[in-house]
């Protein structure tokens, strides 16, 4: 356990090192901030002045050290595009993305697990077959297509739900939330369904296959041989084993949900970090890109660690060796 945790930590540090180095390299060499920031008709002197102001003339390692130090202080630089601190920009956008991802995860888990169990227990039922077929359509449909179709049907066609923005928000301790207003909820429906659909199919398929594995295992055979009730075997014995990998996968899925949020936010013009990032990519706004990379890297590392800890608490095989 201790060994597993150390190797995890080492890996986390490694990932963060690689990520900061990438972010720095991007920041320093890729964007050519001078060209982006100066006017079309700027003179050489004006450009050199700007480069000095941005600190681009110092040695590389000094710049990297300064970069890391600033990042650790929470100073992620200033956006080339709108001249505001990147940290502020991210902080503004974070609540929107987190609410979207949270809603999608809840949706995906609350539907995915029961459906997966159903497909494993009654593989020949009409419902299970339909769910299976639909799940294949689900993994084959890219998020943006789902979004466009939902907009076409529910916004353009039926005029039922808003197709962009997050509606009215209310500040709760400085966190602007859309979960307290009717328009906020209405705005959340389409984006969160869009984002959840892809994850839903993944979780459903995982639960199904894990459940099938568990049901064909020796210990379930042995439980049957002791005449235990079918319900008890399915929902207490097998389900617990089947849900173990779901912990890991859900954790990792939250990571990719944030990535997929880029697409969803683009389709629905949802004012989250993904939209910020995509706008940064098209404007070569390197500080924002780099900061986003740093943030996502940190988030993934944190989620991975959290998943490991939860797993260790839940799985007796790991828990015991921790003692």
């Amino acid at each position: 356990m201790l060994k597993a945790l150390t190797s995890r930590l080492t890996q986390a540090v490694l990932v963060m090192l690689v990520v900061t180095a990438c972010a720095f390299l991007m920041f320093r060499y890729v964007g050519d901030p001078v060209r982006v920031l100066s006017r079309e008709d700027a003179t050489q002197e004006e450009k050199a002045e700007l480069a000095r102001a941005l600190g681009l003339d110092r040695p590389v390692l000094v710049q990297y050290g300064g970069f890391v130090a600033r990042v650790l202080r929470g100073d992620l630089g200033v956006s080339f595009r709108n001249q505001r601190p990147v940290a502020t920009l991210l902080a503004e956008r974070l609540p929107a993305t987190l609410e979207l991802v949270f809603a999608a995860t809840v949706l995906a888990l609350s539907l995915g697990i029961p459906l997966g169990v159903l497909c494993a227990l009654k593989p020949d039922s009409v419902l299970a077959r339909a769910v299976q077929a639909l799940s294949l359509v689900g993994v084959s449909t890219p998020t943006f297509v789902t979004g466009i179709v939902l907009i076409l049907v529910f916004s353009v066609g039926l005029g039922l739900l808003p197709s962009f923005g997050r509606g009215q928000t209310v500040d709760v301790f400085g966190w602007p939330t859309g979960l307290l207003t009717a328009s906020g909820w209405r705005s959340l429906v389409l984006p969160s369904v869009t984002l959840a659909l892809y994850q839903l199919t993944l979780i459903m398929r995982l639960v199904r296959s894990e459940m099938i594995d568990a049901l064909s295992s020796d210990y379930v055979r042995y439980a049957r041989a002791r005449g235990l009730p079918e319900r008890y075997i399915n929902f207490r014995l097998a389900l617990r084993n089947a849900l173990m990998p779901v912990i890991t996968v859900t954790g990792l899925q939250i990571g990719s949900l944030i990535a997929f949020a880029i697409v969803t936010e683009t389709v629905f013009q949802w004012p989250g970090m993904g939209l910020l990032f995509i706008q940064a990519v098209s404007f070569a706004d390197i500080p924002v890109m780099a900061a986003y990379l740093l943030f996502v890297g940190l988030l993934f590392v944190a989620i991975n660690m959290l998943v490991d800890v939860i797993y260790a608490l839940v799985d007796p095989r790991l828990r015991a060796s921790a003692r």
């Binding site: 890996q11 490694l14 990932v15 690689v18 990571g255 990719s256 990535a259 997929f260 880029i262 697409v263 996502v296 890297g297 993934f300 590392v301 991975n304």
Partner: peptide
Amino acid sequence: GDVILSFPTIL
């Protein structure tokens, strides 16, 4: 590979 897999494909 581990570091690469820490990030989703699309990102």
